[in-house]
Design a protein around this nucleic acid. Structure first.
Lengths: 233, 233
DNA sequence: CAGTATCCGATGCGATACTG
DNA sequence: CAGTATCGCATCGGATACTG
């Protein structure tokens, strides 16, 4: 780690916080990922060695605590009070980006798999039926492909390969549109009405689906771009 | 610039904000430095080429505007609205560090020259006398050396070499102590009473000195370390 | 599953020299 | 003063293979 050689608190904080990948690792921990493999799912492009290195550094810096649970042999990573205290910074950083830049999603940032992973963490569990429900996502357009969300009363999971179970609901969606809806740039209802998203399954499931699906934390942040005249307004 | 390949607003923001040196450059701009040379003073360890590169990138990202003033030929760098909107993030980042870590100043982060530069930006101008006052700082201990603060009604400046003017006030201070006072870890009065800081000059100037000298923005932030028992408490 | 060890290539960055 | 251009090294980090 290279230092800045400045006593200024902004510099000292940046030596820890502003390293590559670190804000995203903190985001993952703040969102409730604790196991190494969970962190990897939320950070698909980080290498194992680098993730391990960063976690070690964050532990030495006092932001992260590595816990080896007596029951399982999978260690868990948890934020310390100091780490948790970065919540505001991480959130405001994201909100800032969402306010000023986000309506334009770079094609290279599309990632259906990551999208599903994010979704399965924010489901409104109390709205889910009391049995297992399997939702199949058929993405069309860029990065077309199918993924499955397995919603169980206790915990839900994501599959990239067909699970053995019967599918209860199929969501056919344009890849970019699904991202836009998730980030709040387009409403679910609007995407449905334009047939950019189509639902196929039992009526009750299809009707309830938008209720289970919580959008990104940032979806509710108003962007300044809405005030910027696009063409002769 | 390497990207993260994620649509998440935290990731998109980090691609801009969390690059090396960038939070410190933003801090400088937020503190009111606008010319290239001013930025260099506040970032003594950055290389010219890197500073230029970062400024170009921040301009292309829409956070910074490069203005060539008609009167002077020195261009100025100003934050756009989007850049200014990062104020909260930068401040909270610094406050976070100050809360959890800052009482222990790393010896390698001491920098009397930077300290003086920071000071001259935060002087309480309205408390200054209506004439030029020259303050000589004699740092003792680590990094001993002398520096001069030239306080003029209109603008103040820092000298690393003896200015031609007569000295009105001498501040003899232990280097680490002066840093600690600046950051709010020790009160000016306490340092004076322990003779870690000594003032030498006309009574009125010496008495008024602590009034001119505004401390760091972060000096007023309460640290959690004060609640941590050090030894058997 | 949760890492570590090693290798090697890309690039980030500092140093130096030059320019209007 | 406010940069740009070039060079060369150091380190960062990805890929792969290995381990308990």
């Amino acid at each position: 780690m290279t230092k800045y050689g400045q006593f200024c608190p902004v510099a000292k904080a940046s030596e820890i916080f502003a390293e590559r990948w670190t804000p995203l690792i903190l985001r993952e921990l703040l969102c409730g990922s604790h196991r190494f493999s969970e962190l990897e799912h939320g950070l698909p492009k980080i290498s194992r060695s680098l993730l391990a290195q960063r976690l070690r550094f964050l532990e030495s810096a006092g932001l992260v605590e590595r816990r080896v649970m007596p029951g399982s042999r999978s260690p868990e990573y948890h934020l310390t009070d100091a780490g948790q205290d970065l919540y505001d910074v991480v959130i405001r950083l994201g909100e800032w980006s969402h306010r000023w830049f986000n309506p334009l999603i770079d094609e290279r940032d599309l990632d259906p798999q990551l999208l599903l992973w994010d979704m399965h963490r924010r489901l409104h569990k109390d709205c889910l039926p009391d049995r297992r429900v399997v939702v199949q996502f058929d993405f069309t357009g860029d990065l077309a492909g199918s993924y499955w969300l397995i919603l169980e009363p206790e915990e839900s999971s994501v599959c990239w390969d067909p699970p053995g179970f019967d599918v209860d609901l199929i969501v056919r969606a344009d890849t970019l549109t699904m991202h836009r809806v998730w980030l709040g740039h387009q409403s679910f209802a609007d995407a449905l009405s334009k047939r950019l998203i189509e639902l196929d399954g039992a009526q009750e499931l299809a009707r309830a689906f938008p209720d289970w699906l919580a959008l990104s934390h940032f979806a509710s942040v108003r962007g300044t771009y809405q005030a910027i005249p696009t063409a002769r307004a």
